[in-house]
Design a protein around this nucleic acid. Structure first.
Length: 895
RNA sequence: GGGCGAUUAGCGCAGCGGGAGCGCAUCUGCCUUACAAGCAGAGGGCCGCAGGUUCGAACCCUGCAUCGCCCACCA
C-alpha cells in the first residue's frame, strides 16, 4: 500500500485534487432521486469575491456535495451579473485613468470596454470559485447579458408592457447631476452632515389676525424658487387659522396656498413647511394630494433653469448662497440654526443627489405583490431562519412601484421604440427602424437601460432555457434553495418570487437560507475603504480552502451577523492571521495524521465487514451511527454550524483521542484482533471522510485515494453518503456507557498523576473499590475486568486491582472518585502527603458546596411534587454519590 | 420613528427551562514512534442590569443599558 506523506502539503494537494475533479467533471449535474437544482447568486463582475461570497458559496457547495453523494439529482448553476451601475462606474474610472471619458468614445466603444472588463473579472471570479472547491457546473456558465438571457429579459419587459404592468411616468427620483442618471434608493448612500436650518419669512397676501408673514424652516433655501405651497400639521391647533390663506412667495412673486397635511410634524422647525413638489419626495406626495403645480427649477446638471433672473445659471450651492443673501437683504431672513441631517450621495461619484422630477419607467407592483405574499404566507417558500419571513412580509406590504429605468449605457436597453413622426410607441422583441403605422424611418429606441435587478429577477428560470426551451425547466424548477444575504431579500429575493410566479406560474425556490453578515473583528462592516476586509484568497493561501470552509461553516448559526476573527495590518491592510481559521487548519492536519496512522498499520489487511468485537468497537460504531444520522439531518435543516462542530468533536475527541488509542494494543499484536481493528479503523475512517467531505472536500478526497476501500466511485466526491438507516443497527448504548467508564477511569488516573507531577513514564499501581455491592456494581466490575488491559495501557499502569467492596483501603495512596468507584493510586515514595491532604480538602470543600445545593433542592417539597420524576431521580442519585464521596474523603483525611 | 439581532472565560463563539461549554490564548508536565499544526492535565465566568413567571431561569416574559443591522424619515 502506498505510504502517505508525513506532512500534508495543503497548497499542492488542493491544486492537484482540484484538477482531478475538473478532469473528471464530477461537478457536472448528477442524476438521482429528487431534484436539487441550486442557482448561485450571481456575483457582480465588478471585482473579486469577498468573505460574503466565500460563505455563501461554501454553504451551497456543502449542500450540493452532500446532496450529490446522497443520491439526489443535483445541479448547481454558475453565472455572473453584469451589475449595470457598479460595472459602469468601474469602467468609467478605468477610462478616466487613461485620460478619456465615456462620452468621448461613445456608447458602442464604451460597451466594448465593459465587455472586456466583464471577461477579465468574470474569469477571475470563476477561478476563485474553483479555488474554494465549489462543485458548480463550470461547463455551463450563465451571464445576465448573454444573448439568450437578454432575450428572456426582453420578453419579460414586452409582456409586462403589454399587460400594462410597465408604464412611463414623471416621478421624483434620486438624480445624480454629475452622472446624469437616476439611481435607485438602494444605490444612494446617506451621510450625516452638519448643515443649517434657515428660517425664512414668507409674507401673507392678507394679514391673519394681524400676523403679516409666516416663517418656514428649510435646509435647502435654494429650492424655494420652486415652492408651490405651504403645509401645516392637521394636529397643530394654532396653525389652522392659516389654512386656506395665501402667501406671496418672495423673489418669484407667486401666490401659493397654505394647506394642512399629515406629513408635517408640528413639533419640528416652525410648523410651517415650504412645499417644493419637484425637488423633494415628500413634497411631491403632498403636491399630488393637494393638486399643486410641480415646478422644476434645475436642469439635469442641477443648474437653475431659465426664468429666474440673476439666479438662472447658478449651481445649487451658488443659488443657495444667493437666495439666503436676498432674504437677508430684504429682512426676510428670520434666523439660522445649526442643524445636522443626513444627505444622500451618489455611491459612484459621491455627488449630492438631487431629488428630481423626471421621466422614468416603472413596474406596477399591485398585481404582482399579492401572489408573492401568498406563497410565503402559506409556506410554499420558507425562510431560514424563519424570522426573515417577517422582513419579507413587511417589505411586501410597503412595496411601491419599481423604477426600472437607468440612464446608463451598460445594461439591457429598454426595448421600446417610438416614431417621432406619428407618435407610435411599442415594446418589441425585435429591433425595428421603420414605423409600422406611418412607415417613417424616424423610429428611435429608448436610450435608457434597465435596472440590474430587472434582469437578475429571472435568474432561476432564465438560466434554465426559458423562454425558448421550457422543457429544460421540467423537473428542475422550482429550485431547491436560494442561499443569500439578508440585504437583498427585498431587492432580489422578492422580485424573483414575483416574476417567477408571473411568468412560469411557479415559485422560484422552496427554501431561502439567509446567512449571517460577516463583520470585521471590531463589529463594523467589512469595507474596502476602511481596509478591514479579508480576502478569501488570502485565507486560502495562508491556511487552505478546507480550513477556510470549515471555519466559515462553524459561523453558520441562528445569528444574523458574526464577527470574523482575523487580524489585519492597519497600514498595509494585509491579513496577518486568523486564529479560528488556523484552528480549522489544525483539524485538517489532524485528519491527515489520523488517516496516516491507520495507513501505517495496514500490513496484512484483508477487506471485510466491520465487527463490534470489543466494547471499544461497539462504542465507535454506535457513535458513528448517531453521527451519521445527526449530520444528515443537520445539513437537511441547514444547521451547518452544528454539523461542523459535531464532525469535529467526533473525529478528534472520539475517533482520534480514544478509538485509535484503544486500538493500538490490538494492532501491536498479530492475529484476528489486529485484523478486526484494521477493518473497523478503515470503516470508521472511510465513513467519517464521507461525512466530512462536503465540508472539507480537498483533504478528504486526498486521503480517500489511499484508503483500501472497495468502491466503484472514481472519487470520494461522487461516492455514496453513509446510510444512517443502515448504520442504525450499530447503535449500542451499553457499549457507549462502558467506554465512558473506561474514559473516566483513565482520566482520573491521569489527573492524579498531573496533580502530583508524576512523570508520564512512571508506571502506577492502581486499585479500584466499589462502594456498593449490588448488581450494578458487579456489572461494572465485570466490564472493567474485560477492559483491564486497555485501562492499564492508556493510564500507563503497572497493575490494576479490583478490590472487594469491604476490602481495606491501600495505604499511602491518592484517592479519586468515578461515580461510586474509588480510585486508589499507590503513591508511596512518589509524593508528599501534605500535598495530598491539601488536595483532598479542596475537593471536600467543593463537594460540600455542591451537596448544599442539592440538599436545598431536595428539601423543597414543590420540587419533589412538581418536577419531572426523572429530574428528581437524577438529583437523588447525585446526592447519594456526593454523600458517599464526602464520607470517603473524610475517611481518607482521618487516615 | 418602526423592526430585527447581539450582550456567556482575555479573544471569537456554541448552548436557549433541570449538572456553565467549545476553539484560541494562559499555566503545568510531556518529543508517550499518526500528529509539538501534537499529547496529558489545570486555572479562569454575579451567562449585560433590574424586575417577573416557574418547584427550578444563561435559557421564557417585561423594562432598561450598550453595540450592531435593516426599513422609513430628517421641511
Amino acid at each position: 500500500m502506498p505510504e502517505m506523506p508525513k506532512t500534508y502539503d495543503v497548497a499542492s494537494v488542493e491544486e492537484r485534487i482540484l484538477q482531478k475533479w475538473l478532469d473528471g467533471k464530477y461537478y457536472a449535474r448528477s442524476k438521482g432521486e429528487g431534484d436539487r437544482t441550486v442557482v448561485i447568486p450571481p456575483p457582480n463582475v465588478t471585482g473579486m469575491l469577498h468573505m460574503g461570497h466565500a460563505l455563501d458559496d461554501t454553504i451551497q457547495d456543502t449542500y450540493i456535495r452532500y446532496s450529490r453523494m446522497n443520491g439526489y439529482s443535483t445541479r448547481w448553476i454558475l453565472g455572473t451579473d453584469h451589475a449595470g451601475i457598479a460595472t459602469q462606474t468601474k469602467v468609467d474610472k478605468k477610462l478616466k485613468s487613461e485620460g478619456v471619458s465615456r462620452l468621448e468614445i461613445g456608447r458602442e466603444a464604451f460597451l466594448e470596454e465593459c465587455q472586456k472588463w466583464r471577461e477579465e473579472y468574470g474569469g477571475i471570479i470563476v477561478e476563485q470559485i474553483k479555488r474554494m472547491g465549489c462543485s458548480i457546473d463550470f461547463d455551463d456558465e450563465k451571464f445576465t447579458m448573454s444573448p439568450e438571457y437578454a432575450k428572456a429579459v426582453r420578453k419579460v419587459f414586452c409582456d409586462w408592457y403589454h399587460d400594462d404592468l410597465i408604464y412611463r411616468g414623471k416621478r421624483i427620483v434620486n438624480w445624480c447631476p454629475s452622472c446624469t442618471t437616476a439611481i435607485s434608493d438602494d444605490e444612494a448612500e446617506y451621510q450625516d452632515e452638519k448643515g443649517h436650518l434657515w428660517h425664512l419669512r414668507y409674507p401673507l397676501v392678507e394679514p391673519v389676525d394681524g400676523v403679516e408673514y409666516i416663517t418656514v424652516a428649510t435646509t435647502r433655501p435654494e429650492t424655494m424658487l420652486g415652492d408651490t405651497g405651504i403645509a401645516v400639521s392637521p394636529d397643530d391647533p394654532d396653525k389652522q387659522k392659516f389654512v386656506g390663506k395665501m402667501v406671496r412667495l418672495p423673489i418669484v412673486d407667486r401666490e401659493i396656498p397654505i394647506f394642512s397635511d399629515w406629513h408635517v410634524d408640528a413639533g419640528f422647525g416652525t410648523g410651517f413647511v415650504k412645499v417644493t413638489p419637484a425637488h423633494d419626495p415628500n413634497d411631491y406626495a403632498m403636491g399630488q394630494a393637494h393638486d399643486l403645480p410641480q415646478i422644476n427649477i434645475f436642469d439635469e446638471h442641477a443648474i437653475v433653469v431659465d426664468g429666474y433672473g440673476e439666479f438662472t445659471g447658478m449651481t445649487r450651492d451658488q443659488c443657495r448662497e444667493a437666495v439666503v443673501a436676498w432674504f437677508e437683504e430684504h429682512e426676510l431672513l428670520d434666523h439660522v440654526d445649526e442643524h445636522e441631517h443626513s444627505v444622500m450621495h451618489c455611491y459612484r461619484c459621491d455627488s449630492t443627489l438631487e431629488p428630481w422630477l423626471s421621466e422614468q419607467w416603472f413596474v406596477a407592483v399591485d398585481r404582482l405583490k399579492g401572489p408573492a405574499t401568498d406563497v410565503v404566507a402559506d409556506g410554499q417558500v420558507t425562510f431560514h431562519p424563519s424570522r426573515w419571513t417577517q422582513t419579507y412580509m413587511t417589505w411586501m406590504e410597503n412595496l411601491k412601484d419599481w423604477c426600472i429605468s437607468r440612464q446608463l449605457w451598460w445594461g439591457h436597453r429598454i426595448p421600446v421604440f417610438h416614431c417621432t413622426d406619428c407618435g407610435w410607441e411599442d415594446a418589441l422583441m425585435e429591433d425595428t427602424d421603420v414605423c409600422p403605422i406611418c412607415g417613417s424611418h424616424a423610429v428611435h429606441q429608448e436610450e435608457d437601460v434597465l435596472d440590474t435587478w430587472f434582469s437578475s429577477q429571472l435568474w432561476t428560470f432564465a438560466t434554465q432555457g426559458w423562454p425558448d426551451h421550457p422543457e429544460e425547466l421540467v423537473g428542475h424548477h422550482p429550485t431547491k434553495v436560494l442561499v443569500t444575504a439578508r440585504d437583498i431579500i427585498a431587492l432580489w429575493v422578492a422580485r424573483m418570487i414575483m416574476s417567477s410566479l408571473y411568468f412560469i406560474d411557479q415559485i422560484p425556490f422552496e427554501d431561502v437560507f439567509i446567512y449571517a453578515t460577516i463583520l470585521a473583528k471590531d463589529g463594523s462592516r467589512m469595507s474596502k475603504s476602511k481596509g478591514n476586509g479579508v480576502d478569501p484568497m488570502d485565507l486560502i493561501a495562508m491556511y487552505g480552502a478546507d480550513a477556510m470552509r470549515f471555519n466559515l461553516l462553524t459561523l453558520v448559526t441562528n445569528n444574523q451577523d458574526v464577527k470574523f476573527d482575523a487580524n489585519i495590518d492597519k497600514k498595509t491592510h494585509e491579513l496577518i492571521d486568523s486564529p479560528r481559521t488556523e484552528a480549522a487548519r489544525s483539524f485538517v492536519t489532524k485528519i491527515w495524521n489520523a488517516a496516516r496512522f491507520v495507513m501505517l498499520n495496514m500490513d496484512g489487511y484483508e477487506p471485510g465487514e466491520p465487527q463490534a468485537s470489543t466494547a471499544a468497537d461497539a462504542w465507535i460504531l454506535s457513535r458513528l451511527a448517531k453521527l451519521t444520522a445527526s449530520v444528515t439531518a443537520g445539513i437537511e435543516e441547514y444547521r451547518f454550524g452544528d454539523v461542523a462542530r459535531e464532525l469535529y468533536a467526533f473525529f478528534w475527541n472520539e475517533f482520534c483521542d480514544w478509538y485509535i488509542e484503544l486500538c493500538k494494543a490490538r494492532l501491536a499484536q498479530d492475529g484476528e484482533g489486529r485484523l478486526i481493528a484494521q477493518r473497523n479503523l478503515v470503516f470508521v475512517l472511510d465513513s467519517a471522510l464521507r461525512l466530512l467531505h462536503p465540508v472539507m472536500p480537498f483533504v478528504t478526497e486526498a486521503i480517500w485515494e489511499y484508503l483500501p476501500v472497495e468502491d466503484d466511485a472514481p472519487a470520494l466526491m461522487v461516492a455514496a453518503w453513509p446510510d444512517a438507516g443502515e448504520l442504525s443497527r450499530w447503535v449500542d448504548d451499553e457499549a457507549e456507557q462502558a467506554i465512558q467508564l473506561v474514559v473516566q477511569l483513565v482520566t482520573s488516573v491521569r489527573a492524579t498523576r498531573a496533580a502530583y507531577g508524576i512523570s508520564p513514564r512512571q508506571e502506577l499501581a492502581v486499585s479500584l473499590r466499589f462502594t456498593a455491592d449490588d448488581e450494578d456494581a458487579r456489572a461494572k466490575r465485570a466490564l472493567i475486568e474485560r477492559q483491564k488491559d486497555l485501562i492499564i495501557a492508556l493510564a500507563k499502569l503497572s497493575s490494576l486491582d479490583i478490590l472487594d467492596h469491604d476490602a481495606p483501603r491501600p495505604a499511602e495512596s491518592g484517592i479519586d472518585f468515578v461515580g461510586d468507584i474509588e480510585v486508589f493510586t499507590a503513591l508511596s515514595g512518589l509524593v508528599d502527603f501534605a500535598e495530598e491532604k491539601k488536595r483532598l480538602e479542596t475537593r471536600r470543600a467543593k463537594a460540600t458546596k455542591e451537596l448544599e445545593k442539592l440538599d436545598k433542592k431536595l428539601g423543597n417539597q414543590n420540587f419533589l411534587d412538581k418536577a419531572a420524576p426523572e429530574a428528581v431521580e437524577k438529583v437523588k442519585t447525585e446526592h447519594a454519590a456526593l454523600v458517599q464521596e464526602l464520607k470517603l474523603i473524610d475517611a481518607q483525611l482521618a487516615n
